[in-house]
Write a protein that binds this DNA or RNA. Structure first.
Length: 474
DNA sequence: ATGTAC
């Protein structure tokens, strides 16, 4: 499909509807951030998504949009489930409920400085990471894993890994309803049994950061953040279990397309009506994998807490935990009519506005915390949800790639990058030189520009800027 | 994203 891109404002573009698109595309970005500039086909994918059965209003792209499997990463699409609207695993992503959690430390960067090396050494020794098996927990078997997949982060807390307040600061209270472990295949279970409590690889990390700048004192205070404060940011997902769930259900849906009379511009958009048997089966498996990811982040939190207690005598309070690879059934007004929608957010963070009933009381006035990790060596942002959000309460999830992993490997050497980061005062504990090179800051868009465009496009507002002190890399 | 894959 050759797309026609029309600039509506300095921060918003429209992709004109043409067959087989059912709705237009809307891209929140500046001209510099558009993925086309680098030959990336993400905007063609935005147009492809607009052809999904039941899609309403528009196919959206966030400022960090880039190419992905079927859907672009940084894509948002909502389908009307009472009008044949579909669920597409490719609109969630292979890493189901991949997400970010931010912890606020009871210590500032200056007093931590002399203890930083010890802290990083403990984190480096105790945080499982990299490809393959190895996690903080070894589960006894399928039965125990099923309990974890039903209860999510709450399962970890019930077993002494965390405090009840943690769950108040998790999206969905740490437990996504509707999990159906019977739809998680044995192969996914086998992979999941040995990876609970592990970062994984690629762009996953555990980072020690400091608050570099506060844009909104009142909201920062509500989030428990102040200038100079140390934080921990954890980015990880559902590991091999989520990957296997996605693979298994994509295959089923690909084979059921004909039965539901669904025609698609790209087979990677394989989908089924959200209320159909394959649709419900996937949603149940997806929720189970999501709860696995949430338990995973909860366990890694406990590893960080242990390291901070030993090295710095400091505690870590959860600011918020939110996914950026999810589909959720939500009610939204479309042309003045409340509809039950299946909202796909792939590489896009949910961004609830102030006063939303799903927010805990102490965050109601501020709006939902939105966590926007940058890259090793660059800033990360904390933002807040706004009432003006026009993308089904969704926002950017990170910097967004501009180089493929292959390109990054050709241009960057991991050892050199590590030296550069260390010389700039960022301690690095990598899983491998190769993974480090693939995640070089130069392989990503400018996160400062992404955050600025996110605010200018009225997707969210700036609260605080965080800078890295040390990174444990997957 | 991922025991870089059926």
């Amino acid at each position: 499909m050759d797309i026609t891109l029309v600039q509506e404002t300095p921060f918003r573009f429209r992709i004109e509807r043409q067959d087989p698109m059912r709705v237009p595309g809307v891209v929140f970005a500046t001209r510099e951030l558009l993925p086309q500039a680098t030959g990336d086909k993400a905007l063609e994918q935005v147009a492809n998504v607009a052809a999904l059965p039941g899609i309403v209003r528009a196919s959206y792209a966030m400022p960090d949009v880039h190419w992905g499997y079927g859907f672009p990463i940084g894509g948002v699409a909502a389908t009307d489930i009472d009008a044949g609207g579909v669920i597409s695993p490719g609109g969630v992503g292979f890493d189901i409920s991949c997400g970010v959690r931010l912890l606020a430390a009871g210590i500032d960067r200056d007093p931590l400085a002399p203890r930083m090396r010890r802290l990083m050494d403990i984190l480096g020794d105790t945080v499982p990471r990299g490809l393959g098996p190895g996690g903080l927990w070894k589960l006894s078997g399928r039965r125990q894993l099923e309990e974890l997949m039903v209860a999510g982060a709450a399962y970890a807390v019930e077993h002494g890994r965390g405090v009840p307040r943690d769950l108040e600061r998790c999206e969905d209270g740490g437990t996504l309803a509707g999990a159906d472990p019977s739809q998680v295949g044995q192969r996914a279970v086998d992979r999941g049994l040995r990876q609970v409590g592990s970062l994984g690889s690629a762009n996953h990390f555990l980072e020690v950061q400091a608050v570099d700048r506060v844009y909104d004192d009142r909201t920062a205070a509500a989030f428990g953040l102040h200038p100079g404060q140390v934080c921990v940011m954890i980015h990880c997902g559902s590991r091999g279990l989520g990957h296997q769930v996605c693979s298994d259900h994509v295959k089923v849906m690909d084979q059921s397309l004909r039965a539901y009379g669904i025609q698609l511009p790209d087979r990677q958009l394989a989908c089924a009506p959200a209320v159909s048997v394959p649709g419900r089966d996937y949603l149940g498996a997806m929720a189970a994998a999501a709860n696995y990811a949430r338990a995973n982040r909860q366990l890694l939190t406990e590893a960080a807490r242990h390291a901070f207690a030993v090295a710095a005598g400091a505690e870590l309070d959860l600011v918020y935990d939110v996914s950026h690879n999810m589909a959720k059934i939500e009610t939204h007004d479309v042309d003045g009519v409340p509809l039950q929608l299946c909202v796909h957010r792939k590489g896009a963070t949910r961004a609830l506005p102030p006063g939303h009933r799903e927010l805990p009381d102490d965050l109601a006035e501020a709006g939902q915390p939105i966590l926007v990790p940058g890259t090793m060596g660059t800033a990360s942002y904390v933002m807040a949800g706004t009432a003006g959000n026009d993308a089904f309460w969704s926002s950017a999830h990170g910097a967004g790639r501009v180089w493929s992993r292959h390109q990054a490997l050709r241009r960057v050497r991991g050892e050199e990058l590590c030296e550069q980061l260390e010389s700039h005062g960022v301690a690095v504990r990598p899983a491998s030189w190769r993974a480090l090179a693939e995640e070089a800051p130069d392989a990503y868009k400018d996160v400062d520009a992404v955050a600025a465009a996110t605010e200018a496009g009225q997707l969210a507002r700036l609260v605080a800027r965080l800078v890295p002190l040390g990174v444990v890399k997957g």
